[in-house]
Design a protein around this nucleic acid. Structure first.
Lengths: 219, 219
DNA sequence: TCCAGGCTGCAACTTTCGATGTAGCCCCGG
DNA sequence: CCGGGGCTACATCGAAAGTTGCAGCCTGGA
């Protein structure tokens, strides 16, 4: 089970270094190289590698956007590699679907272990970055799952749909337009779902929808 | 700079194994052992170790609660160790302030590296768990930081306070009672902060408050 | 077949929100 | 001293949100 890797990195010297390191590792084979984001996405489509080693800073299409494109099509796992560990890069890359995040000062051994882990569907994050991910994680979701969440499954399809739209901050008229019903009807659904979830206003419903990650199916 | 470690684990055999592994590592010294959560917290207060190696399942006070107690007092870093990687344990421990999360089947080398990393203020997470943390992270915060967030600092103290209460799902009257002002005044603040943040309803303000982790100072 | 019960839909009516106009207060610079 | 300008505060009024009663529509069972 050889792991096929595509290396996307604009600086030729660094790229060659990565190719050498990975090529020397047993069970890993570099099947392609890209010097910009667009080429990385295109080669990923053609070569179908198991994993793309992706630099963040690249011309034509940055690494985060390229990562999003690749994971959206489920073409391959992505391991992001960068010099700087700005929060924006880290969180952006992980939200874009990256399976790992390493700094370029990692040694060869770490890099190879990370490639193996991510290719296996696991995660790999540089220790210095891990702590910030944990902190951010704890900050953004410090709340115990509210009791209301447990009752969400009791909602009817329509109510569930309305809840998602409420969570997006839409007014009743706006929701009515998108779902093709009168404002009055939307109000009925809102009122009912509030009752079922034991909430007292659409604001609380919106917060709940956020926690659950509900989004109105963009259509 | 020796790292002083407190080992909290109820199974004596496992605990002794951990002590042996850590004791053999250069730069690491085990300064205490605890067989339950309460003792772990108490010993952490007395011994002031650099790091507590904490099992999740323990009598009298579970590892997650003990972790929360220790980090709340900033007594030490905590590295959580468990047999099972249920999401509830992982996310609970990390929200409680743990700096790392390892499975008990980790080898000695991994354990020692993790202890060093967490003691240094970095993070350490088992690869299998990392991926789920990343997924959960991407799920709970898939939204780009809204442009409104940038303008939050322009809010006056009072407005900021009202925003936090809106985020908690309170009505204007309720907010008025808690902050000692008339409903009419609350409305003014809400209206103004909506204007400053370019939002169209309190629902959107509430969602923003959630994203930013704003909470009304419980008092 | 007919009825019960759940889902969806709409139309009053009441309550809450949000916009707007105005006023007191405090601080800072002229 | 006194005149802005920002913050806080309140009242009023039109516009939303939420409640309640009711009516079609299915589906499953008697």
């Amino acid at each position: 089970m050889t792991i096929h890797v595509l290396v996307a990195e604009d600086q030729a010297a660094v790229r060659q270094g990565l190719v050498l390191i990975l090529g020397a590792a047993p069970g890993i084979e570099v099947v392609g190289e890209a010097a910009d984001g667009e080429r990385a996405v295109r080669l990923a489509r053609e070569l179908r590698p198991d994993l793309v080693l992706m630099d963040v800073q690249m011309p034509r299409l940055d690494g985060v956007s390229a990562t999003a494109a690749i994971t959206a099509e489920r073409l391959a796992e992505v391991l992001v590699l960068t010099t700087f560990d700005f929060d924006a890069y880290v969180f952006g890359a992980l939200r874009a679907g990256a399976g790992g995040f390493l700094l370029k000062d990692s040694d060869a051994e770490t890099l190879i272990a990370a490639v193996r882990a991510v290719a296996a569907g696991e995660g790999a994050i540089a220790p210095a970055v891990t702590r910030r991910l944990i902190t951010e994680f704890a900050r953004t979701a410090p709340r115990a799952p509210s009791p209301a969440a447990a009752r969400v499954p009791t909602l009817t399809p329509r109510e569930h749909q309305v809840l998602a739209h409420v969570g997006a901050g839409l007014s009743n008229v706006q929701i009515g337009r998108r779902l093709g019903m009168a404002e009055a009807t939307v109000k009925t659904h809102v009122s009912r779902l509030l009752g079922k979830l034991d909430l007292r206003s659409r604001v609380q419903a919106a917060v709940l929808a956020q926690e659950l990650g509900l989004t109105p199916d963009a259509r």
